[in-house]
Design a protein around this nucleic acid. Structure first.
Lengths: 235, 235
DNA sequence: TAAGATTAGTGAGTACAACTCACTACAAGT
DNA sequence: ACTTGTAGTGAGTTGTACTCACTAATCTTA
């Protein structure tokens, strides 16, 4: 601004420049949202000109997709590892739901971009982000499938529907938080979702009162068999 | 085009013109989506000029909101009536889920606008569409509450979470259909969602084997009390 | 019926952002 | 030192939301 156009041009290698642009784009998209973020401002922040960005990315949208692809790549790292440490379908399910909620809590702005700007567009299927998202949600379907095969979950509910109820439910429930209002109690919500899903699909639900009744009758039978009156101790 | 600017100007009353614009806007938004629909094209279809639309609507976005408000108004009509005809929390729940799925099936393009362009925006809360949507989803929360009060549903799961799992789940599950791919089997999906939700919140789940055990013990106790040997008939 | 008031409708703009392209300048290879 | 590949430029073009000073059709009132 102060010195009129006498700026030194800095030349970077392709890789490095691409990385810089992705980083600046992620920041600005998170700050302002996709629409409001101008490509020219991303360029300005890096001290380059708009045209340079179009040298490396075909369009603003491609830039957004690449930003989110990188994010997914970051996430996949410790997913399998964490999952391998937990046994039992219900506990594994809980882990996936809990981790997803934690991700929403940690990166609300990126989630917002994903939900709003990417997943909703015409061309979504066919993008690399779609493939990565499929891989991400497939973890949950696989855990449910294990549960069915192990006899822990019933087999008459299509797994994709359960998947959609979990991820769709979380998205709706977290929307306020994602938009910057209120907080997100990850532990509590994870527990409640597991409760709804499992006691809907678990083969043997608790049935507390039936259970208590069985126990009571059991004790009576025990005492009777030992020759005691069934009413002996009831006062 | 053919006669150079010698078009007759048609003057309409305010009400009528507004109605015309809303209708044309709804069509074009559904055809092309919000972004791709140009205000100038809405005007062109009515044989008027862009500025005229801005005489009646402050912005393109207000136009979209008004279109969706009108749609909600259409829907509310027979909602209470239908609901009044059905008894029992589970059946009423099924009705609401079934009706919502049918609406999605019938108006996928308007649903798409609602999900994509309206609900996701910053200013959504504070719009009249938000209020109408609240009223719409509140039906389901009320039905759940009735179920809890009637002792049909457990009371340890927050109703808003269930609401979000239902509507969020449906939205996710129907997204392919909304985007014009495949079909939507309303009856089947409604049944499955009710199954998941109810057998998750219903107070007395089937628990067939626990039930049988209770029955068996009951019979033993009966016989014992009548002075018979507990093992009398077991062979 | 004619003048004045009201308001529907016009169309030529402005502003701004995505995207393009012919060109410049820097660095490496020979 | 000359050539060549390519990073970077910046002045466009295009398209669209939105504005505004103005025109003309209709209504009101004398």
């Amino acid at each position: 601004m102060s010195r009129g156009g006498a700026r030194k041009i800095v030349r970077l290698g392709r890789e490095q420049r691409v990385a810089e642009i992705l980083h600046a784009a992620r920041d600005l998209f998170c700050e302002k949202g996709y629409e409001a973020a101008a490509v020219a401002e991303i360029a300005a922040r890096l001290g380059i000109v708009e045209g340079t960005i179009y040298k490396y990315f075909e369009s603003k949208r491609e830039l957004l997709l690449k930003v989110l692809e990188h994010w997914y790549e970051e996430m996949f790292g410790d997913y399998e590892r964490d999952l391998a440490a937990v046994a039992g379908a219900r506990q594994r399910l809980r882990l996936l739901i809990w981790r997803h909620l934690r991700t929403v809590r940690e990166y609300p702005l990126l989630c917002r971009l994903m939900f709003r700007e990417v997943r909703a567009e015409q061309d979504y299927r066919g993008t690399a982000v779609y493939a990565k998202n499929r891989r991400y949600t497939q973890f949950l379907v696989d855990v449910l499938k294990e549960g069915v095969e192990a006899g822990e979950f019933r087999d008459d509910i299509p797994l994709p529907l359960l998947r959609d109820m979990v991820y769709g439910g979380i998205e709706h429930h977290a929307w306020n938080y994602i938009c910057g209002r209120g907080d997100l109690d990850v532990d509590r919500i994870a527990g409640q979702i597991v409760l709804v899903v499992c006691d809907g699909v678990a083969l043997r639900p608790v049935a507390a009162d039936l259970g208590r009744e069985t126990q009571r009758l059991s004790q009576i039978v025990d005492r009777m068999e030992r020759g005691l009156s069934p009413r002996a101790e009831s006062t």
